[in-house]
Design a protein around this nucleic acid. Structure first.
Length: 416
RNA sequence: GCCCUGGUAGUAUAGCGGCCUAGUAUGCGGCGCUGUCACCGCCGUGACCCGGGUUCAAAUCCCGGCCAGGGCGCCA
């Protein structure tokens, strides 16, 4: 069918009703709700940008009253001021065309008269997104991605994209998904760590926003097997330099979202910085022990964004720059008890990197491709990785990471 | 990998040995209503996850499976 007929009136979308008052217009959308009062039918029509009311009288009222909810329709009519308590304007319909009828029994109700469980919603995600509250999460997600790209680019970072199919484990430790690469074993990348470090050799400041994969059978509200990470790496920067970039980025995201009309908190002051040892002292943890969820939840319960710096070397990956005998030039960015980002200064000396690989029971020979770069004049460098989905949890106030990912992949869900 | 909880119409829930011929809301179908706005009123439709067991009697108790929610660990 042709979407643009010669006789069609001007097509408008829900937010444009006010500026078209008194005009005869065409609107496309889905039937969100219906209220029938005898020979008068009210249709609440949704489109990607909002909702509005359409009024049908006489024969059209009868036709309109039998349209299944969520059906897609084309309406034409005059835009008038409404006496409705909710809608300032409404459309007095004189033409309605049903583009596609929806099933009369739907797997969930986007009008949310009855709230569905998370898995019911995810299993029917497109329909779930006809609910503006759910849709808003992903509109915001897209906006935040743009904001991050703009900010990092403005600050001189070059966007790169590195392979997600790799030959060997990039960091050791985490379980990787194994794939068959023309008969050879290969793995899905757990992070861009080694590539982004190699790239600062010539590009100086790089960032990458991409999906990564971990084959851990985590069963929590903050882990997925496929997740999105924002990574940066910069030559000739130390730990505090990249922490500052991270803090400024977070603050910039908040102020930009506010400017776009999103309801987000005001961030005041600088992010507090605690050393790992200070956290240990205030929570009774022994030096060298990792900070458990319980400890971090307790420590962070009355805090928002803050840093924990100078972690024991033994708790950080092999490429982390040592600070003295036992500590490292590292940091985590926390929000309450949730780890949002981690980073620090990296080792830039070949010999030290080999030594740290060995200390972590990793074989330097299997890192030969990576190590050779360190013989070519590698600068001092630092960087971080930010869990983008976790950041979205914080920005939206949702407490399950699955709520802010369209089609989440966890150990139990490979579809949809 | 370990641990806890739960699975009742399309959706969400009540019931937790016999009062269940399984209640309610919403959806869906029908009827009435010309200004609703979570419209309203009346009528109807539709469910105990699967397989064993205990018992005179199981939606309800026990075991196994499957599915789901959450905690720990791992981390982003």
């Amino acid at each position: 069918m042709s979407l643009k007929k010669e006789s069609s009136p001007k097509r408008v979308q829900s937010p444009e009703l006010g500026e078209n008052e008194g005009k005869y217009v065409e609107l496309h959308g889905w039937v969100h709700d219906i209220r029938i009062l005898g020979k008068l039918t009210f249709l609440i029509i949704g489109d990607p940008y909002g909702y509005y009311q359409a009024v049908l009288k006489g024969e059209l009222a009868k036709k309109g009253s039998s349209i299944p909810r969520q059906s897609y329709v084309i309406l034409r009519g005059n835009v008038v001021k409404s006496v409705s308590k909710i809608n300032p304007y409404e459309v007095q319909v004189n033409y309605i065309e049903i583009v596609n009828e929806a099933d009369t029994v739907l797997p969930l109700d986007p009008a949310s008269k009855v709230q569905s469980e998370l898995m019911t919603r995810i299993n029917n995600r497109p329909l779930d997104l006809r609910d503006s509250e759910e849709r808003k999460i992903f509109l915001m997600r897209a906006d935040v991605l743009h904001i991050i790209r703009d900010f990092l680019t403005q600050n001189g970072f070059v966007e790169v994209d590195t392979p997600k199919i790799i030959a060997t484990a990039s960091e050791g430790g985490a379980e990787l998904f194994k794939v068959d690469y023309f008969g050879k074993p290969a793995y899905l990348a757990q992070s861009p760590q080694l590539y982004k470090e190699e790239l600062v050799l010539a590009l100086g400041k790089v960032f990458e926003i991409a999906h990564y994969f971990r084959a851990e059978k985590s069963n929590t509200v903050k882990h997925l097997n496929e997740f999105t990470s924002v990574d940066i790496e910069s030559a000739m920067m130390g730990k505090f330099d990249v922490m500052k970039i991270l803090e400024e980025l977070i603050k910039h995201i908040y102020s930009s979202l506010k400017a776009k009309g999103y309801q987000v908190n005001e961030l005041k002051g600088n992010f507090p910085i605690y050393t790992y040892e200070q956290v240990c002292d205030s929570t009774g943890v022994n030096f060298g022990e990792d900070l458990s969820s319980e400890v971090l939840n307790e420590f962070g319960k009355d805090k928002e964004f803050y840093f924990i710096i100078d972690w024991p070397l033994s708790l950080k990956p092999f490429y982390t720059m040592p600070k003295g005998e036992k500590l490292s030039e590292s940091f985590d960015l926390m929000y309450k008890g949730l780890e949002l980002a981690s980073g620090g200064q990296r080792i830039h000396k070949y010999d030290l990197l080999v030594e740290r690989l060995k200390a972590n029971n990793l074989n330097p020979e299997s890192f030969a491709e990576h190590l050779k770069v360190y013989r070519w004049g590698m600068p001092v460098h630092s960087g971080w990785g930010l869990g983008f989905d976790r950041l979205m949890m914080v920005l939206t106030g949702r407490n399950n990471i699955r709520e802010v990912v369209l089609y989440p992949r966890d150990s139990r869900h490979l579809a949809p």
